[in-house]
Computed example of a mutant assay.
Amino acid sequence: MTGKLYGIGLGPGDPELMTLKAARLIAGAKVIAYPRLAGGTSFARSIAADHIAPGTREIVMDIPMTVDRAPAQAAYDAGALAIRTELDAGHDVVVLCEGDPFFYGSFMYLYARLRSDYPVEVVPGVSSAMSCAAVAGLPLAARNEVVTILPAPELARRLSGGNPTQTLPPSDTIVVMKLGRHFAAVRAAIEVAGLTDKAVYIERASTPDEQVMPLSKAPEKAPYFSMILIVKGADPWL
Score class of each variant (00 low, 15 high):
Ile83Gly: 02
Ala189His: 08
Lys221Asp: 14
Ala156Ile: 00
Pro101Gln: 08
Ala75Val: 04
Leu114Ala: 13
Val93Gly: 11
Arg181Thr: 14
Ser160Asp: 08
Ser128Val: 13
Lys178Met: 04
Leu5Gln: 13
Ala82His: 08
Gln73Trp: 10
Thr19Asn: 11
Leu168Ile: 03
Asn144Thr: 14
Gly125His: 10
Val135Lys: 01
Met177Val: 12
Ala193Asp: 14
Gln73Ser: 13
Tyr34His: 15
Leu150Tyr: 03
Gly7Leu: 03
Leu155Trp: 00
Met61Arg: 05
Glu16Thr: 11
Ile228Trp: 11
Tyr76Ser: 01
Asp62Cys: 07
Arg157Asp: 02
Tyr111Ala: 12
Ser116Tyr: 00
Pro164Ile: 01
Ile230Phe: 09
Met1Thr: 13
Ala193Thr: 12
Glu16Val: 05
Phe183Asp: 10
Ile47His: 13
Gly90Gln: 04
Ala27Val: 01
Arg113Cys: 05
Tyr224His: 14
Val94Gln: 05
Met61His: 06
Leu10Cys: 06
Ala33Leu: 02
Asp68Leu: 03
Gly7Trp: 07
Ile47Pro: 09
Met130Asn: 06
Ala141Thr: 13
Pro219Cys: 09
Gln73Gly: 08
Lys221Phe: 14
Gly55Pro: 05
Leu96Val: 11
Ala49Asn: 03
Pro169Leu: 03
Met213Asp: 02
Ile52Lys: 01
Pro170Asn: 12
Arg204Cys: 14
Gly55Glu: 08
Ser106Val: 06
Leu159Asn: 06
Val93Glu: 09
Pro153Cys: 03
Pro139Gln: 04
Ser216Val: 12
Lys198Ser: 14
Gly55Asn: 09
Asp92Lys: 04
Arg157Ser: 12
Asp100Met: 04
Ala129Thr: 15
Met177Asp: 05
Gly39His: 08
Gly40Asp: 11
Ala82Pro: 07
Pro15Lys: 10
Arg45Ile: 06
Pro12Cys: 13
Ile174Pro: 10
Arg143Lys: 13
Ser226Ala: 15
Leu17Ala: 10
Met65Lys: 03
Pro139Leu: 10
Pro170Lys: 07
Arg115Trp: 06
Glu191Phe: 02
Gly161Val: 03
Glu220Met: 10
Tyr118Lys: 02
Leu159Val: 01
Gln73Pro: 00
Asp117Val: 04
Met61Glu: 09
Gly99Arg: 09
Val231Asn: 10
